[in-house]
Design a protein around this nucleic acid. Structure first.
Length: 514
DNA sequence: CGGGTTTGACCGGCGC
DNA sequence: GCGCCGGTCAAACCCG
């Protein structure tokens, strides 16, 4: 990027130089510009040095020391302005034309450069995705090996499929319909369809699949019929299902997916982060040790959707908003909701695959010990009796991404601002993407490379979460009271920060949970 | 009037 | 058994 910037500067210098040699016919100027571009493309370093020399020389001699500049350009100019008297003797009427032409040439150069950079970016993105997929497969093999002797085979498959889905959700720009936070889809078995969410066609099946996974797991069967039943089981107001829930927790080692939480830390002055879903606040409590109240939301996009989230400001830094997600949606998600869904899904899948063995409030495992910055320690605190993974999006542009001490929970500090190229990923850059402050933050080229490398080397889920989080940040307008705007702007991966007191639910939500 | 939020009450888990 | 605490409920209230 820096190089590009310098190149652009060089272009401008070149234009100045051309202006110095104004009075050149248009066609020949275009030709020279073409040469110029080629020179810029393949010998930029040399060109820069030449440019430097040129500027120095221009200080001494404004006539343009053409011989010092790239031979291609200078030769052409010299040849074309072989009659120096012509260019020098141009009238005042001709000079504006020449400048105009020069500007056109510059514009063309810049356009050409932009095209070239864009193609480079596409290439990088393709390579990135390719590498991501390969790494994902390798990690999955490793995970299967590591867990094979300990974990239930179903869990392995669950995680595998979950991560696959998570990655696929990103590989495909299509909106994903299922937030597999706790229950990543397990198999392709679609024999049992959910009756509770008729609007859904295929995605809901994953929930059902998981339910059968649970039932098929050794131990007690959990009476789960459909999504709404699961809702009542895990979240519903019925008391008897809560007993089932506790039973599930008793066998959490066998059914760990049901209780994973994904906590997203993000800096936001807004009271909550809009993730594209519709939430209804159903409670608020003052949590101990935190002066800021904790708000409880449940998803209202579909009847019986079990997904809930807690929103609370960090006690230490009140500018940090902590959003904790639980459950998985049993309904299709709007494009705007897929980002966070994929993020939480990937994070939960990663957490669960590596932390399902710890139940004692002890750091579950270093799932990725080679990651210095992403300590994936899943702790089971008293306040959070479930494995909780934290996606830390609070890394500022000036923060040192990898020096952050590992928090107590599984945490993935996401140096969002080091991924400007990802912002241009067609998967996550919808056409109507509004300009965002986050776009201005990605100006750390060196860190970007390191970060991307580390991210790729770490885990595809991490990268998936990262990308989704980036999209989340970048698509966040300062105020967004209109859910329609949020969901219809096509910002598939760009949930917005909502304004205070503005319920994200402005769309008519007739499906109010009982 | 429908849908949301607010807020006090209630419930269950957990530690002492 | 008791109290604390997190989570949830539901009536009251607010708003468009």
């Amino acid at each position: 990027m820096e190089k590009q910037h310098r190149r652009e500067l060089t272009f401008l210098h070149s234009g100045d130089f051309l202006r110095e040699n104004s009075g050149v016919p248009d066609r020949t100027l275009d030709d020279s510009s073409d040469h110029d571009i080629k020179e810029m493309d393949f010998f930029s370093t040399q060109y820069q040095s030449n440019d430097h020399q040129q500027s120095e020389t221009n200080d001494n001699n404004n006539n343009g020391s053409s011989s010092l500049v790239g031979s291609c350009v200078n030769i052409g100019l010299n040849l074309l302005s072989s009659s120096p008297g012509v260019s020098r003797a141009t009238t005042n009427e001709e000079k504006p034309n020449a400048e105009e032409n020069t500007l056109k040439i510059e514009l063309e150069k810049l356009n050409e450069e932009n095209r070239r950079l864009r193609s480079m970016l596409d290439q990088i993105t393709r390579n990135y995705n390719e590498l991501q997929g390969q790494l994902f497969m390798a990690l999955q093999k490793q995970a299967n090996r590591n867990q094979g002797d300990q974990a239930d085979q179903n869990l392995v498959f669950k995680h595998k499929d979950a991560t696959i889905m998570s990655v696929q959700q990103f590989m495909d720009s299509r909106p994903s319909a299922v937030l597999d936070v706790n229950e990543p889809s397990g198999s392709n078995d679609k024999t049992r369809e959910l009756s509770a969410s008729p609007e859904n066609t295929t995605e809901v099946v994953s929930k059902e699949r998981d339910h059968r996974m649970i039932q098929s797991s050794p131990g007690k069967n959990v009476s789960i019929d459909d999504g709404s039943d699961q809702t009542s089981q895990s979240w519903g107001s019925f008391k008897s299902p809560k007993l089932d829930q506790s039973k599930n927790e008793d066998q959490a080692s066998e059914v760990p997916f049901r209780k994973a939480r994904v906590s997203v830390r993000a800096r936001s002055e807004a009271p909550l982060i809009s993730d594209g879903c519709q939430w209804r606040k159903y409670g608020q409590k003052m949590a101990k040790g935190n002066p800021c109240p904790r708000a409880y939301y449940r998803c209202t996009m579909a009847v019986g959707c079990p997904v809930r989230k807690q929103v609370q400001r960090c006690a230490d830094d009140k500018s940090i908003l902590i959003t904790t997600y639980e459950g998985n949606h049993n309904h299709p998600l709007p494009p705007a909701a897929t980002a966070m869904a994929s993020t939480t899904s990937a994070a939960a899948a990663m957490l669960l695959s590596g932390s399902t063995k710890s139940k004692d409030g002890q750091p579950a495992s270093s799932y990725f010990p080679s990651l210095p910055y992403a300590s994936s320690m899943a702790t089971l605190s008293a306040s959070a009796p479930f494995p909780t993974i934290t996606l830390d999006l609070t890394q500022g542009p000036n923060a040192v991404p990898f020096l952050r001490p590992p928090p107590s929970t599984a945490s993935f500090p996401l140096p969002l601002h080091g991924y400007p190229h990802l912002l241009g990923n067609p998967m996550f850059a919808p056409p109507k993407l509004p300009p965002s402050p986050a776009m201005q933050l990605g100006q750390r080229p060196a860190t970007m490379v390191e970060t991307v490398t580390a991210a790729i080397a770490s885990d595809p889920n991490f990268t998936a979460a990262l990308v989704a989080a980036i999209s989340t940040i970048m698509g966040a307008p300062p105020r967004n009271n209109d859910e329609n705007n949020n969901s219809s702007n096509g910002v598939a991966a760009a949930p917005a920060i909502t304004a205070p007191g503005s319920p994200q639910v402005q769309q008519s939500c007739s499906n109010k949970p009982g």
